[in-house]
Design a protein around this nucleic acid. Structure first.
Length: 925
RNA sequence: GCGCGCGUGGUGGAAUGGCAGACACGCCAGACUUAGGAUCUGGUGCCGCAAGGCGUGAAGGUUCAAGUCCUUUCGUGCGCACCA
């Protein structure tokens, strides 16, 4: 390293304190009932020791980072941004007297380690452990106050045992619409009709259509099928997003513009047997409970959009002619039913094959084939032009008995609503475009409020016309009336639809949690699934030589024949769970990380998640926006199931959530290897130290904003820390220290050469000094509460700039300042704190647990203040007045100002606005 | 297209409706120095010698007073995107 002279010996200070904290287990959080050593700083601060009940513990504060995937590339500067923010707040809350839970762990299942295994044959666990070791080293070098005793990795057997256990809970539960919550599957009553039912119709959870017609042989089989159709974890054979390149299926959320989110590979639709989780049962709760939590509006909006609730009606249309078929459509505009001039089924709709007329049969089949061959991308992005074909069949509009043609078109999605629509071209843009292209009739049924507005393509609310008994009604009323009419006549009903679809939960991978599921054959030879008992957990993955999928496309687990085939002839499930599984509940495990009896103990959950009266557990959760709809929705879903089943105490997992912004490269571009603008924290640490790094990450700008990295900026805060150092230490001793450093190697003794600045004395502070200090306490405290780290740091800079001019530095003031600095630059603060106490023969209490200073408002009161004077609203001068000057005095002082005089001379004062303590404005004319 | 956010010096960014630009970077000048990529001091929105004028993407509006509130508009970022 050929760098400039160090501002201060952070290279000695930082390892020293990191070691001290580790030895003391300084940041270990204690659970209710846990033995607290009497000499632990937490015990000392709160005068506790031994086993302490929840009620005797201080109020909890649970502050959580989104745990990282330990990639081979190591930490980049984006990771520590959120971690620094949470660490500052954790330290602040600890000082404020809270019992702070601040854990860290690893989201360690995942594709890269597996891909590496496919290439090299090295077990993913080996790669994963090496990466975790590197991440741990990097994170620890930043001096974060994590409770490492609670560290976990989703790949730990002790952890994924319970991930599998939760899966069993999902599998063995159903959502009871009566009680509006998840319940054990045993509470599901079999309908009486089941016994006599000859044909079992399985409901496609995605399309809402019946797609499986099974003729069960026995009542037992009927009951099994019935239960399986209700479980929260179930098997579906719906089309899935298959990514050949990755050799696995992906959830809808993991597919972006027809490409995989990871790697950007082509994704195709393919029907496969898959495990699904019934997240749609929770659509309403997931939506409604957003109101109870403190997340940013934009994030809530993203989740709302994703859930996509829309109110409308389902209307049953009979197919004209033979067969007695009917189909349901969903519409949000039932009031326009009179304007429906045709109907459209999605090409995949089950009815299509049954109703196509002989003349149209070929065209229909060709179109279906065409649509099936298109990727999602082609169906949407390239759909500038609508396409479709007439089926040759007609439907009867229930409202007026009109015969309308039934078309199929891929602008109608199979996966939304009922996969079928009524087309009202007059008042729907898509229908209009389609109708124009295929010359279908367009009938106005809504009159726009403004007569000048063209009714064609008018989609807003208006007044119903050409609509029989609805005529003259405003849209909302027309909706109500037609819905009531439909219900009365049995033609339809009010319906709420959600865009949210069930969660595709299986992956064809090796490096994930195996499903605790086996497949059996019944007497008739039908394959059925069965859960393993809880007592058999954990189910470990087999060891493999080769991690590729099998030649016939089976997941890698199918290679392990010994593992796969059980003595009784049953076969194990070969899919594994997606990476999201582990991250769905890790925040719960942190509260009771070592519990071998349960995924989390009741006492621990009650204390850490529910004891401060808030509706939801984690007090602050910080992470990137990339998880806005994936992890955060899935975790909320699991949490709600666990809540319904009585395993956790709160309905929501994360009370307050903040997204940190992206850190861009110095060139203002997103950091990436290919651009060569990646900043490695290790390099920054060598040059400037952890404290400067932490400080800079926070000083760059508001946490939530996207902002570019700037090495010069690091130097700025580094210089600030240097000034703090020089404010405290004696310059001569530092010179001696530097000379000694060139010849000596013993680090601790070296630091002892540093002496305090002679100006620091144990004397009373002057009022001016107190004012500077307390202004700083106030600003830093308020900014920490508001998570405005950048302005808090600037307040400390102001303090230092001021204090640099002091001849004498009162000990008390200097100590208090160090307390303010401690959350931001803990190593430097601890070192100076210790030195300060030692020099004055005092024992230093742990800075991490020293009570946070309170500012005294009385000290900030000025006797005289400067206030601005305006003439005609323009600033002209400031006047110095007594703080309690009344309006008359302010007015007089304002008029007396020389500068003001020049602007009012020869003019009449028409009006004077005086805001006491704020300003004076003279209106002249 | 729809929804949300953001537009302030050369740069990152500050500003309960009340002195725009805190703090920092950069730059300029000076001091101390053999030296400075250390440190310290001063300066630094723009125009102007100055007095003063002009300034928060643009245009209107509300107000004694607007970066801040309202309307329109442009730009930009993010999310969603044939969701009936």
């Amino acid at each position: 390293m050929s760098s400039s002279r160090r501002q201060y010996p952070f290279h000695l200070i930082e390892p020293k304190w990191q070691q001290t904290w580790e030895q003391q287990q300084a940041f270990r959080a204690f659970n209710p009932g846990e033995e607290i050593p009497a000499n632990h700083p937490f015990a000392v601060r709160h005068k506790l020791s031994g086993k302490v009940a929840a009620t005797q513990l201080p109020e909890k504060f649970y502050i959580l980072d989104m745990f990282p995937y330990p990639s081979g590339a190591g930490l980049h500067v984006g990771h520590p941004e959120g971690y620094t923010a949470t660490d500052i707040l954790a330290r602040y809350r600890r000082a404020c007297g809270f019992n702070v839970l601040h854990p860290m762990g690893w989201d360690s299942f995942g594709l890269p380690a597996e891909q590496y295994a496919v290439k090299t044959g090295q077990h993913p666990r080996v790669t994963t452990e090496a990466n975790i070791a590197n991440f741990t080293r990097q994170i620890k070098s930043l001096g974060f106050s994590y409770d490492w005793s609670r560290e976990l990795a989703t790949t730990d057997v002790e952890y994924f045992t319970w991930t599998q256990w939760i899966f069993l809970k999902l599998y063995n539960s159903w959502f009871n619409p009566e009680t509006n919550k998840a319940e054990p599957i045993e509470t599901l009553n079999f309908p009486a009709a089941l016994e006599t039912m000859e044909e079992f119709r399985e409901i496609d959870p995605v399309k809402g259509d019946e797609f499986h017609f099974i003729k069960p042989q026995s009542l037992e089989e009927k009951q099994r099928l019935y239960r399986n159709s209700k479980r929260l974890a179930y098997v579906s054979e719906a089309p899935v997003n298959w990514c050949p390149e990755l050799g696995t299926v992906l959830a809808n959320e993991e597919v972006i513009d027809g490409k995989s989110e990871v790697g950007g590979f082509q994704v195709v639709r393919k029907p496969m047997r898959q495990w699904m989780l019934r997240i749609t049962a929770y659509s309403e709760k997931l939506l409604a409970d957003l109101d109870a939590i403190d997340w940013s509006d934009s994030l809530k909006q993203m989740q709302r959009n994703w859930i996509g609730r829309s109110e409308g009606a389902e209307v049953k249309f009979k197919v004209f002619g033979t067969g007695g078929y009917d189909f349901k459509i969903f519409t949000t505009r039932p009031d326009t039913l009179f304007g429906a001039t045709y109907a459209v089924l999605s090409p995949e709709h089950w009815l299509v094959d049954h109703i196509a007329s002989p003349e149209q049969e070929k065209a229909v089949q060709d179109y279906k084939a065409l649509a099936a061959g298109k990727s999602d991308l082609e169906r949407t992005e390239l759909a500038k032009e609508k396409s479709g074909v007439f089926t040759g069949a007609y439907a009867i509009n229930p409202v007026n008995g009109e015969k309308i043609p039934i078309w199929i078109a891929d602008y109608v999605l199979a996966s939304y609503g009922t996969g079928a629509i009524m087309a009202v071209p007059a008042h729907d843009e898509r229908d209009l475009e389609f109708a124009k292209k295929f010359n279908l009739p367009i009938l106005q049924v809504v009159q726009p409020p403004d007569a000048k507005t063209d009714w064609q393509g008018f989609t807003d609310d208006g007044t119903a016309i050409n609509s029989g008994f609805l005529n003259g009604l405003p849209t909302p009323e027309a909706k109500r009336k037609i819905t009531a009419w439909l219900e009365e006549k049995g033609h339809g009903k009010k319906t709420i639809n959600y865009k949210l679809r069930d969660w595709l939960f299986s992956r064809q991978r090796y490096w994930g949690e195996p499903f605790p599921i086996i497949w059996k054959k019944d007497a008739a030879g039908n394959l059925y699934h069965e859960a393993l008992p809880e007592s058999s957990l954990p189910l470990l993955p087999p060891s493999l030589e080769d991690y590729k999928p099998t030649a016939d496309g089976q997941p890698p687990l199918a290679r392990a024949k010994d593992w796969l085939n059980l003595p009784d002839g049953s076969v194990r499930e070969t899919n594994t769970m997606p990476q999201w599984a582990g991250s769905c509940w890790y925040y719960l495990r942190y509260t009771d990380a070592k519990n071998a009896q349960s995924f989390v103990g009741k006492d621990a959950d009650n204390y850490w998640m529910a004891s401060n009266g808030k509706a939801a557990g984690v007090d602050l959760y910080v992470g990137g926006t990339e998880h806005a709809v994936l992890h955060l929705l899935y975790a909320r879903f699991w949490h709600k199931v666990l809540f319904d089943l009585g395993f956790v105490a709160t309905p929501e997992p994360f009370y307050k959530l903040v997204n940190q912004g992206l850190i861009l490269g110095e060139d203002g571009q997103k950091m990436s290897k290919s651009r060569g603008n990646v900043v490695n924290p290790d390099d920054v640490l060598v040059e400037y130290g952890a404290d400067a790094f932490r400080l800079y990450e926070m000083f760059m700008g508001p946490l939530q904003d996207t902002k570019p990295w700037n090495t010069k900026g690091v130097e700025g805060v580094y210089r600030f820390l240097g000034r703090v150092w020089r404010l405290f230490v004696d310059e001569k001793s530092e010179t001696a220290f530097e000379q000694a450093e060139t010849i000596s190697t013993s680090k601790d003794e070296l630091l002892d050469l540093i002496l305090l600045d002679g100006g620091i004395t144990d004397i009373a502070a002057t009022p001016a000094q107190l004012k500077v200090l307390h202004a700083c306490i106030k600003k830093v405290t308020e900014d920490l509460d508001g998570m405005r780290f950048n302005t808090a740091i600037s307040a400390m800079m102001v303090f230092i700039n001021e204090a640099m001019t002091w001849q004498t530095k009162p000990l008390s003031v200097m100590k208090t300042f160090l307390q303010l600095l401690a959350p931001f630059a803990p190593h430097l603060a601890e070192e100076l704190w210790a030195r300060l106490h030692a020099t004055f023969g005092q024992t230093a209490p742990s800075l991490a647990y020293a009570p946070w200073p309170k500012f005294d408002a009385a000290l900030l009161v000025e006797s005289e203040i400067e206030i601005p004077v305006q003439v005609n609203g323009k600033f002209r001068d400031t006047i110095k007045v007594a703080v309690d000057a009344d309006n008359a005095a302010l007015e007089a002082a304002a008029k007396a100002s020389e500068k003001v005089q020049t602007f009012i001379a020869g003019k009449t004062i028409k009006k004077i606005i005086v805001v006491p303590r704020r300003m004076v404005n003279l209106i002249v004319g």
